Amino acid sequence: MTQRVLITGAAGRVGAILRPRLARDGRVLRLLDRRPLEAGAGEEVVTGSVTDPDVMLEASAGVDAVVHLAGHPGENTWPEILAVNIDGTHTVFEAARQAGVPRVVFASSNHAVGYHPAGQDAPDDLVPRPDTFYGVSKAAGEALGSLYHDRHGLDVVCLRIGTCAEHPGDERGLGTWLSPDDCGRLVEAAISAPKPGFRVVWGISANTRARWSLDGARALGYEPRDDAEVFADSVTPATAAQKTFLGGDFCAFGPEAK
């Protein structure tokens, strides 16, 4: 039986990372983005926005899981964050409910908890303390996931993603890095774990300097293989905000960082 996985924001940076890493025999990736995409083998394309309920309902039809990446990837004005990141995420969850999709994997962020102190050992259930409007949108997405699990029975896995890139660029990233390959392993675990219920877990690699728990992600079946320490000689020193706050330089926008 063919499994169908919808990826929103598939033309973005993380979407590009995941497309080849989530490809499997017996699986079709349905790719949704505002920007036109070309479907490869085992792929389908839907062009449209997560803010459009009709587009999302059509895109969610016959889907076994949604990986929700779409949204502004950093700070923006409140109207933009509200319209795309918050209302758009609600549209994704509501379309999944209406279409009978059993699972949503939500790309949350460390910026949902960014104003917690850096250097602490952060558990998976660290309470929200967002560092930006962007961080607020990720905390709101987690709250929507909790609601749609409790009220409607969806399995929802929220991934508080760290520094997802080919390599960390700074000293902070030696602890927060999520390699592209480990990103694929993490999302695959979130898609495949049996009956996860509602969970919020950290998304990082097996970094020597990690201070964020991997217990929750490993309980889903995630086994990271990469370690940012191999880049230790090439990164830039940590900034004052990175030394002070879990969210790093995103917190430099706020008065606490001045």
Rank of each mutant, 00 (worst) to 15 (best):
Thr91Asp: 00
Val5Glu: 01
Ala165Lys: 08
Val235Phe: 13
Glu38Val: 11
Trp202Val: 03
Glu43Ser: 12
Gly135Ser: 09
Gly88Phe: 03
Pro117Cys: 05
Ala238Lys: 11
Ser179His: 00
Ala41Met: 04
Ala41Ser: 13
Gly15Thr: 05
Arg97Leu: 10
Ala95Ser: 15
Asp52Asn: 11
Val157Leu: 11
Arg129Met: 09
Ala95Trp: 04
Asp226Thr: 08
Arg129Asp: 08
Val45Lys: 08
His167Gly: 06
Glu166Met: 05
Ser60Met: 10
Ser213Trp: 06
Glu142Ala: 06
Thr77Ala: 15
Ala228Gln: 04
Ala210Thr: 11
Cys164Lys: 01
Pro20Gly: 14
Gly40Asn: 11
Pro79Gln: 14
Thr176Tyr: 07
Ala39Pro: 07
Asp64His: 08
Ala189Gly: 10
Gly173Pro: 05
Asp181Pro: 00
Leu159Glu: 07
Val67Ala: 06
Gly197Asp: 14
Gly9Ser: 09
Val5Ile: 15
Gly100Phe: 04
Ala99Arg: 06
Leu214Ile: 09
Gly135Asp: 01
Ala139Pro: 01
Ser137Met: 02
Leu31Glu: 02
Gly71Arg: 02
Leu126Trp: 00
Thr176Arg: 06
Gln98Asn: 09
Leu29Ser: 01
Arg103Cys: 09
Gly74Ile: 00
Pro79Ala: 14
Thr51Trp: 13
Arg21Ser: 10
Asp233His: 04
Ala139Glu: 02
Arg199Cys: 06
Thr8Cys: 03
Thr244Glu: 11
Ala190Thr: 04
Ala39Gly: 05
Ser146Lys: 12
Asp125Phe: 00
Ala143Ile: 01
His68Glu: 02
Arg19Gly: 09
Ala10Gln: 08
Ser109Tyr: 13
Cys164Pro: 00
Leu214Met: 13
Gly74Ser: 15
Leu37Arg: 07
Arg218Cys: 09
Asp150Glu: 14
Asp64Thr: 09
Glu94Ile: 01
Asp215Phe: 00
Thr47Pro: 05
Ala59Leu: 06
Asp170Arg: 13
Gly169Pro: 07
Arg151Gln: 14
Val92Gln: 03
Ala217Gly: 10
Ala59Trp: 12
Phe245His: 09
Ser192His: 04
Glu188Arg: 14
Gln242Cys: 05
